[in-house]
Amino acid sequence: MSGTHTDVPSVVAADLPRPVPASEHDACPVSEVLRRIGDKWTVLVIVLLGKRKHRFNELHRSIEGLSQRMLTRTLRSLERDGLVAREVYPTIPPSVEYGLTPLGESLLTPLSALADWAVAHADEMSAARGRAG
């Protein structure tokens, strides 16, 4: 790392073995998080829950094209990873709300940075795809 690149993020500055072993890539925490948030619905669910808690059906109605089954799977995975908390209220019938945990809330800042970058560079990426295809 040269002295002129002191603002390079730590993940980029890290020395990687060459070739990168598949087992190391699979076990990398960065790869694991990208797999977790990289599916079709997770980021959208996290962003909605970042605004406030939602009941299941309210969340389901808020995302066009998301099946109940896939929402259930997404919420369970997020809950298993400690990003979402499920709260059951003792009403008749029982009501359930989903909200972000402190860990889930801490993900909003890097997600926002990634979203800002994507919006800022969308035209450039689209133009590059047009040149490549």
Rank of each mutant, 00 (worst) to 15 (best):
L103Y: 03
E87G: 00
L108S: 02
D116L: 10
E79G: 09
G65N: 10
S112Y: 10
S95A: 07
T109N: 07
A122M: 11
S106I: 01
R73S: 14
A122S: 10
L100Q: 01
T72Q: 15
P93M: 00
P94C: 00
P94K: 08
I92F: 03
E97G: 03
D116S: 12
S67N: 01
R69L: 11
A120H: 10
P90V: 00
D116P: 01
E105F: 02
D116G: 06
E105K: 09
M70P: 05
L108R: 07
H121A: 00
V96A: 00
E87Q: 09
L75G: 07
R80D: 12
A122Q: 15
G82V: 05
A113E: 14
L107V: 07
T109V: 15
I92N: 07
Q68V: 05
I92P: 08
T101A: 04
G82N: 15
R80F: 14
L78M: 15
V119I: 15
R86T: 15
G104N: 09
E87S: 03
P102A: 02
R76I: 00
E79L: 00
T74N: 14
E97I: 05
T91P: 04
P102Q: 02
L78I: 04
A118F: 11
A115S: 14
L107Q: 09
G99F: 00
L75Y: 13
V84S: 03
V88F: 01
Y98R: 07
H121D: 08
E79D: 04
P93V: 00
T74I: 11
E64S: 14
I63Q: 04
H121L: 06
E87A: 01
P110D: 06
M70D: 15
L78N: 13
A122L: 14
G65K: 13
G65P: 15
R69V: 08
H121Q: 11
V96R: 00
S62C: 02
L75E: 11
T91E: 10
P90F: 01
L71P: 10
S62H: 04
I92H: 13
L71H: 09
E64T: 10
I63Y: 02
P110Y: 11
E79R: 10
Q68L: 02
T109E: 13
A122Y: 08
V88Q: 06
Y89S: 07
T91H: 01
V119C: 05
V96F: 01
M70L: 08
T101I: 06
V96P: 03
L103I: 00
P110E: 12
E97K: 04
